[in-house]
Design a protein around this nucleic acid. Structure first.
Length: 271
DNA sequence: GCGACAG
DNA sequence: ATCTTGTCGC
């Protein structure tokens, strides 16, 4: 992470660098935790009801219930793919209202390479976390990218979670084909169970390992989102939290970060 | 060789 | 990620 930043053209012809990146991923992966490792509790099963708890916590350790859910996303200039605005939002878990926002315009010198998104996006997101007051610091962070659902089981959500030592959840709008999983395969799996099917399906790769879940986040949406464990959280908790946040197909923390990072680009005359 | 490839 | 208009519907 502290090494020189290559240009896109350098990178494409330097498999050497990809090997270094792979080594970093495999090294960081040793610190990965894939079960619940946090002090707060998920809100009671809510079927349109509100819940008590996690009231004013300014003078406590907010140890009771989950209250602050973070979301992170980047939007890019249409002209210059290296110019972006990164946004971190924090939502109140019970109201889904944004209680905190930080945005930064940045120039990214690392290109997007499938399977290595973290090397492009993680540094700026870490900076945003660092600029967030502890009183509003997210207890769990949703990231626009995958976690375990990744060629080496260490996507952006894992990468960010380990570096920030924070529970993270990976949210993919499209499936990254991994371990035999294909969009068509998932579509057929969803269709196979017809209308009365569950809205969430565990994704198990050819190797037999559980990589994440496909979730129809809204009743009307045929297209699922793909969620996976990032760090310090189980898949069951991941699914529960994502469901709490789904007013629309895209979970509210990610959606708000997306909207606001776009606004940030406009404000700065980019876009 | 060909297709696939998170954001 | 971004390029793009209208359009159908609540």
């Amino acid at each position: 992470m502290s090494t020189e930043e290559p240009s896109a053209s350098e990178n494409q012809n330097h498999p050497q660098l990809l090997n270094q990146w792979i080594e970093i991923q495999e090294s960081l992966k040793k610190q990965l935790i894939t079960d619940d490792r946090f002090s707060w509790k998920l809100p009671p099963i809510c079927k349109g009801q509100t819940y008590e708890g996690a009231q004013d916590d300014r003078h406590s350790d907010r140890g009771k219930f989950l209250k602050y859910i973070g979301g992170a996303d980047l939007s890019f200039s249409k002209n210059d793919p290296s110019i972006a605005c990164a946004t971190l939002v924090v939502l109140d878990a019970s109201t889904l209202e944004v209680v905190h926002e930080v945005s930064n315009t940045v120039e990214l010198r690392v290109p997007y390479v499938p399977g290595f998104l973290a090397f492009r996006e993680a540094p700026v997101l870490l900076r945003l976390l660092k600029n967030t007051a502890l009183q509003l610091y997210p207890q769990v962070l949703m990231v626009d990218g995958n976690g375990l659902l990744h060629p080496r089981g260490f996507g952006l959500a894992c990468h960010l979670g380990v570096l920030a030592d924070l529970p993270t959840i990976g949210i993919g709008k499209n499936l990254h084909h991994v371990d035999g999983l294909t969009q068509h395969g998932v579509r057929q799996l969803l269709e196979a169970n017809g209308d009365s099917c569950a809205d969430v399906f565990t994704l198990i790769g050819d190797s037999g390992s559980t990589l994440g879940a496909a979730l129809r986040s809204t009743v009307g949406s045929l297209k699922p989102i793909f969620i996976s464990v990032g760090h310090r959280i189980s898949l069951a908790s991941t699914i529960e939290i994502v469901k709490l946040c789904c007013r629309y197909r895209i979970p509210e923390p990610i959606r708000q970060a997306d909207i606001r990072s776009r606004d940030c680009l406009r404000k700065h005359g980019l876009s």
